[in-house]
Design a protein around this nucleic acid. Structure first.
Lengths: 337, 337
DNA sequence: TTGTAGGCGTTATCAG
DNA sequence: CTGATAACGCCTACAA
């Protein structure tokens, strides 16, 4: 377990070249003759050399790693299909690069200092931040950090243009309009936490669609982006009004929770009462009835965010030259509405 | 974005002490007078110093990071409740330590070299490996790596004692016995990939219970540990025999897939045909009917594995002095069997 | 308790 | 194209 590590010196000595040359040959930077490159590669392989990342990072002042920061509790991270798709997508992109992806999950009860310091510690060359709430985590603001940061979901303070998002206002409109088209008159909304921009935007879209149709805004309830949060919100809504005929839920998981409550209450979902959600994840296809849903393209957002970050840290594009990217949501119809 | 980094030298100078003293004060190692410690801390905080991890790692030859290695495709990782619970649990433990957890997801199509080199690159001080298949990934064998490795799930080659697992043979028995007790006579098994020890163990338990009850072994079908894998396996089983009256599915997700197939085929699950699974995750509580399931305590396994690793890398316990830990599975009854 | 000095394994800047 | 040589920022005996 404790054999002496093989270093670049060993490779250089055995290959009969200087350490500098061996370094160039292995890192692929700088000019090296083809014969030397091959010999060095051969030897490195034989003796099982792998460059010490710490030394490399120290000397080059590049960590060859990026962080994916999620300021949410663990259980939420691994239960939510949107976050799952996002994480998967980001991993997918960085698998094909030289960067190691480090998943940083911040608990709400955790001192801001830990993640803040992490980002400042030359541990990573850049970061992607998702699910950003407003009030907490000031250390996640771009101007606080020495490394480039890309946000998934429009940040509250628009000092940065480095973000990707789906057009959530439009998403809320699309969903609500569908309910209106199906003849619903009192349309409620199950929203996520009120301190996230996507949540506010979707509420705005919901209100806009209702207004345009000349309908009164229905009741609104906020909750966590979980099955349980959706169930609780639905319970609240039923207590607020007894004439709801449709619900716009802001995530598939919340809709699934709401459906359970509705069915327990004797409603026939998709019939007495319509429901439509947002995400269009796997979950939308496994509820009964299956959910009509507005897309929230996790994989595409992940791809765009990753590319955006790589443009800055790899291709030296300046952050000020980056334009935000906005994706169009689409309506996917199934049995629930 | 590009201000000069503040280093330990800056702190030392401003505090009027040597770099060595500043280092001791900040890392908390070695003797420092209380007054100096406070002054240094104060200054460090004022000028926003955070130690460069690369330099620290290089000098101390400790990365202050550990890896959680999962040799499965992304989609499987973020869809499976057992893996989700495991990851969550491991994060939970390391949140409270000084170690940064790095999640390493290996794709099947990925060159072994990438992960292997990663583990050798002094990137991490230890690793936890889960979901280990037999044929692939020789680089995940402990003797191949210079760092301590703990396995979740008994490894194929028993050269190491550093593993934690649930008693899968017992789990298979418990599940199958329940079906027998309910009066089932032809009991099929939906198993995970045949190259994983937990899968083989559960099959063994299934067979043992049947044999002891004097029943013929029912049909067996392998598949991926996914909803889809379970559905496919169930389809195969139905083609193999038309008198199955119960199924032991090796994961909740597989059982959920199987249920869909059965219901589409007109079976009344929990009535005509009993089904029982293993994991006892959230999924078991959201299928219709809800699943009877044998526990596979992800959080507890995560906790034990993490502690085991910490004993070796933090408390200098020798790997040879580590005993494997085996958890007892329990039967949880619901409507499906 | 504190300071001095050497080294951790690479990369990068120069000459040659 | 190659080889010295100096960083990179911190830790850690060792000596004071």
């Amino acid at each position: 377990v404790a054999e002496k590590r093989v270093t670049l010196d060993d490779v250089a000595r055995l290959a009969g070249v200087s350490r500098a040359t061996a370094s160039r040959a292995i890192s692929g930077a700088g000019p090296v003759s083809e014969s030397v490159r091959q010999r060095v590669a051969q030897i490195a392989n034989e003796i099982g050399f792998s460059p010490n990342q710490a030394a490399r990072a120290l000397a080059s002042s590049r960590a060859h790693a990026v962080a994916l920061v999620i300021p949410e509790p663990n259980s939420l991270v691994f239960g939510d299909p949107f976050l799952g798709g996002l994480i998967t997508g980001v991993f997918e992109v960085f698998h094909d690069t030289d960067y190691q992806l480090v998943l940083v999950i911040m608990r709400p009860d955790e001192a801001p200092i830990k993640a803040g310091r992490f980002l400042q510690a030359s541990y990573v060359d850049g970061a992607i931040v998702v699910s950003h709430h407003s009030h907490n985590r000031p250390e996640l603001a771009e101007e606080q950090q020495p490394i480039p940061m890309v946000y998934v979901g429009r940040p509250w303070h628009m000092k940065t243009t480095m973000f990707v998002d789906v057009d959530n206002v439009r998403g809320g409109q699309l969903a609500t309009q569908r309910l209106i088209d199906r003849g619903a008159r009192q349309i409620a909304c199950i929203a996520g936490p009120a301190d996230m921009t996507p949540v506010c935007d979707r509420v705005e879209g919901w209100q806009a669609a209702l207004k345009q149709a000349g309908l009164e805004p229905g009741p609104l309830a906020h909750g966590e982006f979980t099955r349980h949060g959706g169930a609780e919100a639905m319970t609240k809504l039923l207590a607020m009004s007894d004439s709801i005929d449709a619900v716009f839920a802001q995530s598939d998981l919340m809709a699934a929770g709401a459906i359970e409550v509705l069915q327990a209450g004797g409603y026939s979902v998709g019939d007495d009462l319509l429901i439509i959600s947002m995400d269009d994840s796997e979950v939308a296809r496994t509820t009964m009835p299956r959910l009509s849903s507005v897309t929230n393209p996790a994989a595409e957002l992940a791809y765009r965010a990753s590319r955006m970050l790589l443009r800055v840290i790899d291709d030296n594009v300046l952050p000020v030259d980056i334009r935000p990217e906005m994706l169009e949501p689409k309506l996917v119809l199934r049995e629930s509405a």
